[in-house]
Design a protein around this nucleic acid. Structure first.
Length: 277
DNA sequence: AAAACTACCTGAGTGC
DNA sequence: TGCACTCAGGTAGTTT
């Protein structure tokens, strides 16, 4: 589920937790990608959430100490704002009790994780290797912002498919499978084109398309294919704007071509066999 | 260096 | 109805 837009939509909806004190923690199911350590996570109690930031697909809950909570949603995770008496659902893993409401982390597939860090979050071992941040919007940790010159430099010596390159978080962080497919379509670039064979002008186009697609999705509340909801329990609607993702065999909306599906890096890859060369 | 594969996990959907 | 199978938004580790 969650790529950059869904994580940003989540962040924005969580901002109402800012300034609230953490009064309690409940762990209902500790098994996530990394097991939630009760002793470690209990250090959150009595701390105040002072800010909620983002880097790529990571959320960072800043506390009034030197500590922070690092949250990754994996493939199916989401945060929910709940009333104190709201019934617990299957796959609600962790509850963070605040003064006005409870934050619940729900993750069916358990690919997400919660880690406690200390010091500058941008120095965390999971964040440090991340590449360019696609959008320059408020609420980000300090990060190099996507720029076609920088992307050009990092792709110059990469012969791998452009789609794999823009999904490589060490080069560009936050673009997942859906938005990689949609952005490449918008830019008219074939997903299998070697990254270093994309012309300068097409790369500039691609950078603009990536930014447009991500911004548009944030405006639409992200994409809900199956499970994604924002912390206010609302679905996203960007899936209604898909042009290629999941549209194998359909006619292209912009030309006479047909949407084809191939597998690249084990991921479904959709493109128009006429618009994208 | 990079490509190709694996693992982690549950649930929805498909075909028989 | 049930069983076997495939596939899904992500990341990271190992092998080739």
């Amino acid at each position: 589920m969650p790529e950059l837009p869904e994580v940003e939509v989540t962040r924005q909806a969580l901002l109402s937790a800012q300034g609230q004190n953490i009064t309690g923690i409940k762990i209902h199911q500790s098994k996530l990608r990394f097991s939630v350590d009760e002793k470690v996570i209990n250090q959150l109690i009595k701390q105040t959430i002072v800010a909620i930031q983002r880097r790529a697909k990571y959320l960072i809950f800043r506390l009034d100490s030197q500590q922070y909570l690092l949250s990754h949603l994996g493939m199916a995770g989401h945060w929910k704002i709940c009333d104190f008496d709201q019934p617990l659902l299957k796959h609600d893993h962790v509850e963070i009790e605040l003064e006005k409401f409870v934050l619940r982390y729900h993750d069916v597939r358990r690919f997400g994780f919660l880690l406690l860090g200390e010091g500058k979050p941008e120095n965390h071992s999971r964040l440090k290797p991340l590449g360019l941040e696609p959008l320059d919007i408020p609420g980000l940790l300090p990060a190099p912002i996507l720029d076609s010159n920088d992307l050009w430099k990092s792709l110059r010596n990469k012969s791998r498919a452009i789609k794999l390159a823009i999904m490589d978080s060490q080069l560009l962080a936050g673009v997942g499978n859906i938005y990689a497919n949609e952005s490449l379509f918008m830019a008219g670039i074939h997903p299998q084109c070697p990254a270093n064979k994309v012309s300068r002008i097409n790369l500039e186009q691609l950078v603009q398309c990536i930014q447009q697609v991500l911004k548009k999705s944030i405006e639409k509340g992200g994409t809900t294919l199956r499970d994604f909801i924002n912390p206010r329990h609302q679905k996203g609607f960007f899936q209604l704007d898909f042009v290629v993702y999941g549209k194998e065999g359909e006619r292209c909306k912009y030309c006479d071509g047909t949407i084809e599906k191939i597998v690249l890096g084990q991921r479904g890859t959709y493109y128009c066999n006429s618009c994208q060369n």
